[in-house]
């Protein structure tokens, strides 16, 4: 979180985490398409030739003033592939809230869990834990045929019982409610601590 009192801006960092190809970039692309241009920055994507996220994607969402303050949310995605673990650590620096984007395909359950454990490990190194950190989980690709049931995904991944969403990111299903909920959770946490 960063507060600029001269401009009365309050900025937060929200990171979309999850295994490779789960739909993190697609979430940001939908949000970017959906928002009025006056409310957002460019969408920056750093891709490899195979169109996979190499380092991160970024966009900023800016809301109208609230009690005189202008809230801003810097949205990032991390590259999911195992070998980009240092990139992920760098992007997590200063994070205020997390969206874990899981791939609902049955064949991807192992990758989901690995990525979630990788996230928890990184948070612990930073002095946090998923148990208390503001985060939500999005079960993406619900439109595909061979998907795991929500009950099973909940049991395997959502061990702290945080809010969950059943999404189809390319058409925006539950993309904005995911975003709204993580923002609300971040603010709620601050309100409790303040």
């Amino acid at each position: 979180m960063f507060i600029n009192r001269a401009l009365q801006e309050i900025s937060f960092k929200i990171v979309y985490y999850g295994p490779g190809l789960s739909g993190k970039t697609t979430n940001l692309e939908y949000i970017h398409r959906h928002l009025a241009p006056s409310m957002r920055s460019d969408l920056v994507t750093l891709n490899t030739r195979e169109e996979r996220t190499l380092y991160f994607d970024f966009m900023q969402l800016e809301l109208g003033r609230i009690k005189g303050q202008k809230p801003r949310f810097n949205l990032y995605t991390v590259p999911g592939q195992v070998y980009y673990r240092f990139s992920r650590k760098i992007i997590l620096k200063g994070v205020d809230g997390l969206v874990f984007v899981a791939d609902s395909q049955r064949s991807r359950m192992g990758e989901n869990l690995d990525s979630l454990l990788d996230l928890e490990r990184n948070l612990i190194e930073m002095g946090f834990s998923l148990e208390t950190f503001p985060w939500v989980i999005q079960y993406n690709k619900r439109d595909l045929r061979d998907v795991e049931t929500i009950e099973t995904m909940q049991a395997k991944l959502n061990f702290f019982g945080t809010a969950h969403f059943e999404a189809v990111a390319p058409n925006g299903t539950e993309v904005l409610s995911t975003l709204k909920t993580i923002i609300t959770n971040v603010i709620t946490k601050l309100e409790l601590v303040a």
Partner: peptide, 11 residues
Amino acid sequence: AKEQNSQALVL
């Protein structure tokens, strides 16, 4: 953890 999370850099 809570305390750290609540830390903001204020200008």
